[in-house]
Computed example of a mutant assay.
Amino acid sequence: MIMNSVTIPQSLESLTYQVDYLNVTFKNDWCQENIATLIDLLFLPIMPVTMQEKIIGADRENIRFRWDNNNFVLNFDYYSQSCWIEGQDSPSTEQLATLHLAMTK
């Protein structure tokens, strides 16, 4: 089996605010083995963050986390190279703009 060489992303391409979620784009393609590094990259500007649960699937990972008394989910989908953050409930969804500002300072 031939393995493709994958560069681990070093930084974000963009973090955009949508009404119901934050869309995350990395400068380089990533693989599922890179997700722990990507989590660290995303959470660094907003520490302290409490990771509540990590759900690992075949091509997707979901990380439930608490920040500033709100509950969010960080989603990674390997096949589509998609990453996004959403609120777990209405009050948290309403705080996505605040989270976006904190992550992009």
Score class of each variant (00 low, 15 high):
residue 2 I to F: 13
residue 4 N to A: 14
residue 4 N to V: 11
residue 5 S to T: 07
residue 5 S to V: 09
residue 5 S to I: 07
residue 6 V to R: 07
residue 8 I to H: 01
residue 9 P to F: 01
residue 10 Q to T: 09
residue 12 L to I: 08
residue 12 L to D: 03
residue 13 E to N: 13
residue 13 E to V: 02
residue 13 E to S: 09
residue 15 L to I: 15
residue 15 L to C: 14
residue 16 T to D: 11
residue 16 T to K: 15
residue 16 T to Y: 01
residue 19 V to G: 06
residue 19 V to R: 15
residue 21 Y to D: 13
residue 21 Y to L: 15
residue 21 Y to K: 15
residue 21 Y to I: 01
residue 23 N to T: 11
residue 23 N to P: 00
residue 23 N to F: 04
residue 23 N to L: 12
residue 23 N to E: 15
residue 24 V to R: 05
residue 25 T to A: 14
residue 27 K to R: 12
residue 29 D to T: 05
residue 30 W to G: 03
residue 31 C to H: 02
residue 31 C to W: 00
residue 31 C to R: 07
residue 31 C to L: 03
residue 31 C to T: 06
residue 33 E to S: 10
residue 35 I to E: 10
residue 35 I to V: 10
residue 36 A to T: 06
residue 39 I to Q: 13
residue 39 I to G: 03
residue 39 I to S: 04
residue 42 L to R: 05
residue 42 L to V: 01
residue 43 F to Y: 13
residue 44 L to M: 03
residue 45 P to I: 09
residue 47 M to Q: 12
residue 47 M to G: 00
residue 48 P to V: 00
residue 49 V to E: 03
residue 50 T to H: 01
residue 53 E to G: 00
residue 55 I to M: 11
residue 56 I to G: 01
residue 56 I to W: 00
residue 58 A to D: 05
residue 59 D to H: 02
residue 60 R to H: 02
residue 60 R to M: 06
residue 63 I to A: 07
residue 63 I to C: 06
residue 64 R to S: 09
residue 64 R to D: 07
residue 64 R to C: 03
residue 65 F to G: 10
residue 66 R to G: 02
residue 67 W to M: 14
residue 67 W to Q: 14
residue 67 W to F: 13
residue 68 D to N: 15
residue 68 D to E: 15
residue 70 N to L: 05
residue 72 F to D: 11
residue 73 V to H: 00
residue 75 N to Y: 04
residue 75 N to H: 11
residue 77 D to K: 04
residue 79 Y to V: 02
residue 81 Q to K: 10
residue 81 Q to L: 05
residue 82 S to D: 07
residue 83 C to E: 00
residue 83 C to S: 13
residue 84 W to T: 01
residue 85 I to A: 07
residue 85 I to R: 10
residue 86 E to W: 00
residue 87 G to C: 11
residue 89 D to N: 14
residue 89 D to R: 04
residue 90 S to W: 07
residue 91 P to W: 04
residue 91 P to E: 08
residue 93 T to K: 14
residue 93 T to N: 09
residue 94 E to A: 13
residue 94 E to M: 09
residue 95 Q to D: 11
residue 95 Q to C: 15
residue 96 L to V: 10
residue 97 A to E: 15
residue 98 T to S: 15
residue 98 T to G: 14
residue 98 T to D: 12
residue 99 L to D: 14
residue 99 L to W: 06
residue 100 H to I: 00
residue 100 H to K: 13
residue 100 H to G: 02
residue 100 H to V: 01
residue 101 L to A: 15
residue 102 A to Q: 12
residue 103 M to K: 10
residue 104 T to V: 10
